[in-house]
Computed example of a mutant assay.
Amino acid sequence: MIKTLFSKDERAFTLIEMMIVLLVISVLLFVAIPNIAKQSNNINDKGCEAFRHMVEGQVQAYRIDMDKYPASVAEMVETGYLRSNETACPNGQQLEIKAGGEVAIVS
């Protein structure tokens, strides 16, 4: 026997079932998206701290090699301890080298 396209024993999703699934997915997205955005800010803040620690390490390497602390970021770039004058963190804050080799985050 040849089955027709619309035989009664075929199983399929109804329009109502598909709409319920789409509603559930939409609600999950509305809950998840704000949490992802909030976590992005936390990630950028932690990235800035990690970048500051990396620059502090380069300042200490400079001090060991040159027997003095660098006067500025430009001096560290000129001597090859940093790649560029960019000292911006992922969250937009800037790094600054203070007297005594302290690296600070400046807003």
Rank of each mutant, 00 (worst) to 15 (best):
I2G: 01
K3P: 02
T4N: 11
T4V: 12
T4D: 13
L5K: 14
L5I: 11
L5H: 13
L5Y: 11
F6D: 06
S7N: 10
S7A: 07
D9R: 08
E10M: 11
E10N: 12
R11Q: 05
A12T: 09
A12Q: 07
A12Y: 07
F13K: 00
T14H: 04
L15E: 11
L15D: 06
E17F: 03
M18K: 03
M19D: 00
M19T: 02
M19Y: 04
M19F: 00
I20C: 04
I20A: 07
I20Y: 00
V21F: 02
L23E: 02
L23R: 02
V24D: 04
V24Q: 06
V24I: 15
I25E: 04
S26A: 05
S26M: 00
S26D: 02
L28R: 02
F30L: 15
V31H: 04
A32R: 15
A32H: 10
I33F: 11
I33A: 11
I36W: 14
I36L: 12
I36G: 07
K38D: 14
Q39A: 13
S40Y: 15
N42M: 11
N42C: 10
I43E: 04
D45N: 10
D45A: 07
K46A: 15
K46T: 12
C48E: 04
C48L: 00
E49A: 08
E49F: 08
F51D: 02
R52Y: 01
H53E: 12
H53R: 12
E56W: 01
G57R: 09
Q58L: 03
Q60A: 10
Q60T: 13
Y62K: 04
Y62F: 15
Y62P: 07
Y62E: 08
Y62S: 02
R63G: 05
R63P: 05
I64P: 13
M66C: 03
D67M: 03
D67I: 05
K68V: 10
Y69H: 15
Y69E: 07
A71V: 14
S72C: 06
S72K: 06
V73R: 10
V73A: 09
A74L: 09
A74S: 09
A74T: 12
E78F: 06
T79N: 08
G80E: 08
G80K: 00
G80V: 08
Y81W: 09
L82V: 01
L82Q: 00
R83H: 04
R83V: 11
S84C: 01
S84L: 03
T87R: 05
T87E: 07
A88R: 11
P90V: 09
P90K: 13
G92T: 04
G92S: 07
Q93F: 02
Q93W: 02
Q93T: 10
Q94P: 08
Q94H: 09
Q94V: 12
L95H: 01
L95S: 00
E96D: 14
K98N: 13
K98H: 10
G101L: 03
G101C: 07
G101M: 03
V103I: 05
A104P: 06
I105N: 03
